[in-house]
Amino acid sequence: MLVLLPPSEGKAASGRGAPLKPQALSLPGLAEAREAVLTELVELCAGDEDKAREVLGLSQGLRGEVAKNVELRTAGTRPAGEIYTGVLYDALDPASLDPAAKRRAARSLLVFSGLWGAVRVTDRIPSYRCSMGVRLPGLGALGAYWRTPMASVLPEAAGGGLVLDLRSAAYAAAWKPKGEVAARTATVRVLHAPTRKVVSHFNKATKGRIVRSLLTAGTAPEDPASLVEALRDLGYVVEAQAPERAGTPWALDVLVDEVH
């Protein structure tokens, strides 16, 4: 099973570990694209701060994020699973997983990123600010930029098993499963049960809990149909819609009572 996650806008501070080693990151097929984004981002932030803030969509109060990006090559690092914070990652709480669940997380979780393309939760990275919605002056819109390298790397990473896609729209734009990979992919919406409306904050929390539940239970569904069964066994209320045509993902709705 491969689980595709969005990053979080909020991030923990860079660690005290060794500086970034790009060659040590997972998915080496993305290395050249990562280097190009990293180089332009560092140069942008080391130049005109106001321009950098405009490109990154940062307010005056977040000017420190620009300075942080300048130090990306020399800052300390920590595992990506510790860097990303926010509602989804609070609910997932990877640090508190038992050893077996942590091993499953290392194998199955893939976090998408405007800067790195995608990393595993064990990859050591510094804290940074660069969303997939950013348009760099040289490389252009990152969502579009990542499509070509992702198209050659992600199908191999997906292997032959289930792909559980929990990404937000901006990150989903960087890679859309196609063909037989799409046929074994499931996307998830979280809906308020009485109204069938998409929830906001609780959407992220529920997705984090779903991932934690699967990792903790050691459940390894091989396809979307068995995922639906596994989630129901874990206590989730799930409505599934099988694809109407070949080569498209399954759509799962998880129903919740909370809407916060």
Rank of each mutant, 00 (worst) to 15 (best):
L166A: 05
A95C: 09
V87W: 00
V254S: 03
V42N: 08
V42L: 09
P6L: 06
S113N: 10
T248K: 15
G114N: 04
A251W: 06
N203M: 07
Y236T: 00
A100L: 14
V228P: 00
Q241E: 15
Q60I: 02
Y84A: 10
L56G: 06
R196P: 00
S108E: 15
R103G: 14
S213G: 06
R245L: 13
P6C: 10
I83F: 11
I125T: 09
G114R: 12
P194K: 01
R120I: 02
D48N: 06
R232N: 07
A151S: 14
L109C: 08
L110G: 01
A46S: 14
M150R: 02
E82N: 12
R135E: 15
L191Q: 00
L231M: 03
G218I: 08
P149K: 10
L191G: 00
P79G: 11
D48Y: 02
A172S: 13
R124P: 05
R167M: 08
L110Q: 06
S108Q: 14
C45G: 02
P99T: 05
R53L: 02
L115W: 11
E43G: 09
A18V: 12
L231K: 00
A246E: 12
V121E: 06
T248P: 03
V199T: 01
P177W: 03
G64P: 07
A31D: 14
V3Y: 07
G235I: 05
A157L: 07
A220T: 13
L115H: 03
T185L: 03
M132A: 11
E222Q: 15
G138V: 05
P79S: 07
N69G: 09
R196G: 00
T187K: 07
L72K: 01
V198A: 15
A173F: 08
L44V: 02
R184H: 08
A13Y: 14
R73I: 10
W146K: 01
R107I: 04
E9K: 13
V254C: 01
V119G: 10
R107S: 14
G208T: 07
